[in-house]
């Protein structure tokens, strides 16, 4: 589904991705963990080419993203959820959800609305369809953002620290929606600091540090028996908290 080969990227003089290989199978849930500044968010953002890359290849569902072709088509197949939600503040929840289906997929208003309401119901917000982002809590906004991404019928969902900007008591409601998606068989790439989610929901956990993948494997192996000393050090630090 996603095939990344030797992906490289700089921010100025900073080498953020130093040749990353990642392969994601259909239906797989891959969780990327690692210290901040390790390049994990950047890696995620290269998948739908929000971050251009300098070297390497990225294939998404058979399309060569690195060649910068059919970007809109790829992006409409790849849903993305952001740390800061990025809901459109001038549109209400339902309008946020139906905007792209009507513009990009050329769906009729009725069809898009019906599907939009169903998705808002799925994330538990059928009552909030007419509410504007400013009237919603962070957790509710993030669930609308997930519904918005799902409205495009994506084949892949990317989560960029989707719970990091939330108050602790609101994290659970968003993780519940993500767990539900994972068990529905969605292909997911998740960057997160929630080790509990990684342990329970991931098919595979990837540990990144300093722009490279240090170690990857099944969650039980990574959490109970990490091989790389950097992984051990990182896990010791985050699990202590």
């Amino acid at each position: 589904m996603i095939e990344m080969k030797q992906v490289q990227k700089h921010f100025g003089s900073l080498h953020v991705l130093k040749g990353v290989d990642l392969h994601v199978r259909p239906g797989e849930v891959v969780v990327i963990i690692g210290p901040s500044g390790s390049g994990k968010s950047t890696l995620l953002r290269t998948i739908n080419y929000l971050e251009p890359i300098e070297k390497g290849e990225i294939w998404v569902d058979g399309t060569p993203v690195h060649q910068h072709k059919d970007l809109r088509q790829v992006r409409s197949k790849v849903g993305m959820v952001f740390q800061q939600f990025n809901l459109f503040p001038h549109l209400n929840a339902l309008q946020n959800v139906v905007l792209a289906p009507t513009l990009v997929l050329k769906k009729s208003r009725e069809e898009a609305d019906e599907k939009g309401r169903a998705l808002l119901t799925k994330v538990g917000l059928e009552q909030k369809a007419e509410a504007y982002p400013g009237q919603l809590s962070g957790g509710q906004q993030q669930r609308v953002a997930i519904a918005r991404a799902l409205a495009m019928d994506p084949k892949i969902m990317l989560f960029d620290e989707a719970t990091s900007a939330l108050d602790p008591e609101l994290v659970g409601e968003v993780l519940a929606v993500m767990r539900q998606l994972a068990s529905d068989g969605m292909t997911m790439v998740v960057v997160t600091h929630e080790m509990g989610f990684a342990r329970e929901a991931a098919d595979r956990v990837v540990f990144m540090d300093e722009g490279v993948i240090m170690e990857e494997g099944a969650p039980d192996d990574i959490f109970s028996n990490p091989q790389n000393p950097r992984t051990k050090q990182f896990l010791r630090r985050v699990l202590e908290k």
């Binding site: 929000l50 809109r72 992006r75 993305m80 990025n86 953002a145 991404a149």
Partner: peptide, 15 residues
């Protein structure tokens, strides 16, 4: 307008 707004629009496939 925050940069994330444009990114969200692009990530949904908007031109």
């Amino acid at each position: 307008v925050p940069k994330g707004q444009k990114e969200a629009a692009y990530s949904l496939g908007l031109s």
